[in-house]
Structures are given as C-alpha cells and as structure tokens.
Design a protein around this nucleic acid. Structure first.
Lengths: 250, 250
DNA sequence: TAGTGGTCTAGACCACAAA
DNA sequence: TTGTGGTCTAGACCACTAA
C-alpha cells in the first residue's frame, strides 16, 4: 500500500507509454532517489541500448532530456555522469527546503507552528479549483538555517486528497514523503510568482527581524502527476539571508 | 560595418559547425527578429528537410531545441507554430525591459538619469574579470510602466569593449541594439541573483515610494557570444508593481 | 587501441487534424 | 484522404579520452 507506483526497471514494449518515456522514468528515478549518486558514471549508451533493447537514438533522446534538466552531463570520450545539484535548482525544480539548504551548505531545521483544518478562502479555492469553504489542511512552519530563522512557509493542502494527513509528524518526516507514502501524491509541476514585500508584524516576530524588513515572497501552486492542483503555498524568505540564482539564455 | 554576423539562410555542409547548429541559428533568428510572427506556422518538417537538404532527425533535433526554449510549439496533425511570448520569459531569457513590459500588457517608457565613465570598483571588476579602476560606462535609467515608475537600472559596461558608446542616444535606441550595431556585442547568456531589499532613500525618491519599501533586486552578469562578461547590471523593481513568474518541474 | 559520446542518414509505421 | 507531427529502428562515420 505504501507505493502507488511500484518501481519499474523494465520496459514494457506492448505499453501505450512510449519507450523513451518509460526509460526516462527509470533513469530519472535512479538519480532523484539517489540510487545513482552525484558524480557516478551512467551505463554507456551502448550498454543502455542492450540492457533495455532500444535503439541508440532512443537512448540519446532520454539522455538529452536528463541533460536538459541538469540531472546529468556528458563528456565526450569519457562517459555520462550524474550532475551535482546546484543552487540554481531552486528556480527550476520543486525541491524541498532541506535539499535547498544542503545545496547552499546550510544546515536546515524546521519548527512546526501550527497544523489544522481551515475553510478555503475564495482566492485560494480558485487557484486549487475547489469550492470556497472546502476543507484545507493549513500547515505553518518556521524554517531555520544554521539555527537562525530563514523562512516561514504557509501550506494549504486540499484535505479530501489526503484525509489522514493531520495524524502525521510534520517535523520528523518531510511533507513531501508523507504525501507520497500516505496519499500517493507526487508533484509533477508547479507555477509560482516571486515578489518582494515588507514584513508584516507577525512574520517579523517569527523571523526575528524588524517589521517592514524586505521579504522574498513566493506563492506557488503545485500540481500532482494527474495534473490536479492540490497545494497552495506561501513562502516568506528573509531578504537578508535568502536569494535566488539562475541562468538566462541570450 | 553594421552587422558583424551577416544573415545566413543557407547551410554550409563543408563547415565545421554541425548542420543542426546552423539550422538552429537560421530558424531562431527568423523568430527572434520577428520575421516569423507569433502564431505563424513554420514550414513542415518535410519541407524543412528538402529546403535545407538534411534528414528529418536533424530537423526534429533543431525543432526540439526551439520547443525547449518555448520559442515554438507543435500540434500533432496541425503543424509547428511560433509561440506567443509569456511573462515567464523574464526568468528564462535575456529580454529587454521594453519586450518584458509588452508581454505584461504595459506601455514602457525610459528616462535617462545619467551616463558617464567611472572607475571600476573592486567587486564589479572581479565579476567582469577586469582590473579594479578600469573604465566602465555607467548608465542609470528610470523605467516607467504606463507612465508610473517601475524600476531603476544601473548598467556597468566595460568601456574598452565599446569605446564610442557614450555618443549614442540611450533613450531613442535600446542599449541592446546599440551594442549589437556599434560594438558587435550580442549576449549569449547571463547569470543573476534575485533578492528582496528595502529601498534606500535615493531609489525611493526616483521610484516615488516610501523609503524602506520592498524592492525586487536583481544583479546580473551578461556574457557575450565570445563568453566574455561585458556587462554588470543592477535592477531595482518596485515590489508593489513588479513580480516574476515561472514554472517548476516535479 | 578500445570505448565513449557527437553527428547524420534513410526509412518505417503510427496518431491526429482538417478538408 | 492528405498532410502533419510522434515514435522508433539500424547503421554509419567522426572526435575525443584513457590505457
């Protein structure tokens, strides 16, 4: 019951799912679940061809996708390797606060402030495509980096998608793993807005900063693998301690 | 003398540059220079094959790259089309303030505050890989959206890469076009940091906001097609009027 | 020299949209 | 029915790295 999607390591040729997508899921899982570690060499294209009985073009199509996501990199004449996570990931991929901090060389800690049911306000209901007043699980957490306040996160989860979630321990387990293991929910994508705001008094108190200090404020809607918007989250980062990094093309 | 890279529309098979890169440059230019407009259908893959005498795999490799950049999209059974610019572009591609505003449905305007030579401070010199004290062109501009102050931009260009730039009209012409036409400089990529800060008094005055209002603060280093860091820019966006948007993968 | 990734080809069959 | 993009194959030659 724990896993909705049992780990596959075989390609099913009769499946309606294209071979390259099946192979993509397999390789991607090996990397994101840390079965292949950063710096590890992947099997060569020739070996992957034989192992999964697909053409080289198909293998390369999959590797291209993983390169595009910065999960692997290739070196001509040497091989293909698992990439080292970079802080730029925070603007590319849905990563946990814990992973984000580790990539920045900071020790993460979490303090649960509250976890309870609330009726969905109109604006959030609209974003989550539910009715105003439907039940939401509201989880408020203070995030610490090297034992200093770093961010406040306000999560709103659609309760009906994960009815038993309030019984869980949000400090011992990541919200991400609880959702995956208890509710079979995995995030496929998200859209977000990034703003700068002045800290209201309550947040300033939590973050140990002066009222009106600048905060990097992110609002994000996360979609499940079934393309259902199931979480709305507001993240308030201390402007003096948190920054986002990214690369632009010409 | 105006163009350093004369427009190519032919593929040279004897060139050391791979066919797919040549084709990519041709198609990309057609799109970014607005020769093909948003919504236009591209020639079909079959036609591109014949027109440029390459295989379908090569054509698709190029189209895949353009899809990845959100410059085109494909519809099975219908064709391939030039994509409509989205506000998400601001976090993906180096776009001008003018284009950014148009994508947001806002009318852009610019007010030149100052343009002069300065000696490079140590921190900027380091980012631009030049010596402290070398000459920089400092251009300070106020950006308006629908006639209201939106942002302040502080550009620092390495003077020796573009010696005659101060003779130009920075209001009538975009900095981008001046650099390309007068100096042969085109941006290939950039790296940036995004923060939230409290507005200092001088910026608050320019932006017509209260001191300490939150600003979305971006510092960016832009690299030329020869991979030389030639510009450092600080952008201060009004937090109440400007936001960044993007999508994340799971 | 052996093994790796980089580039390129010709050809096949399929699903889908529009006429 | 025609033309479009989606998926997949087998095979070739090249450039580079490391032994």
């Amino acid at each position: 019951m724990l896993k909705d999607n049992p780990r596959k390591s075989q390609i099913v040729r009769s499946s309606a799912v294209p071979l390259y997508q099946q192979l993509y899921e397999i390789l991607r899982t090996n990397i994101t679940q840390h079965e292949w570690k950063s710096g590890d060499m992947l099997p060569s294209e020739t070996i992957l061809m034989k192992q999964f009985d697909v053409s080289r073009v198909t293998v390369r199509q999959v590797l291209d996708m993983l390169v595009q996501e910065d999960l692997i990199y290739r070196e001509r004449g040497r091989g293909t390797f698992v990439a080292k996570p970079r802080v730029e990931q925070a603007l590319m991929r849905i990563i946990s606060f814990t992973d984000d901090m580790h990539q920045r060389g900071i020790e993460p800690k979490t303090k649960l402030i509250s976890a309870n049911l609330v009726a969905a306000p109109g604006d959030i209901a609209k974003k989550l495509r539910i009715k105003t007043g439907e039940e939401l699980v509201h989880i408020k957490r203070l995030r610490l980096g090297n034992d200093e306040p770093m961010s406040v996160e306000d999560s709103y989860l659609v309760h009906k998608y994960c009815p038993e979630i309030l019984e869980e321990d949000f400090v011992a387990n990541s919200l991400r793993s609880i959702l995956e293991n208890r509710c079979g929910i995995r995030w496929a994508k998200a859209t977000q807005v990034i703003r700068a705001i002045n800290a209201p008094n309550d947040l300033a108190d939590l973050l140990l900063i002066k009222p009106k200090s600048a905060l990097l404020f992110i609002e994000r809607i996360s979609f499940t693998t079934q393309d259902i918007p199931a979480e709305f989250i507001r993240i308030f980062h201390r402007g003096d301690r948190y920054a986002l990094y990214n690369d632009l093309k010409g």
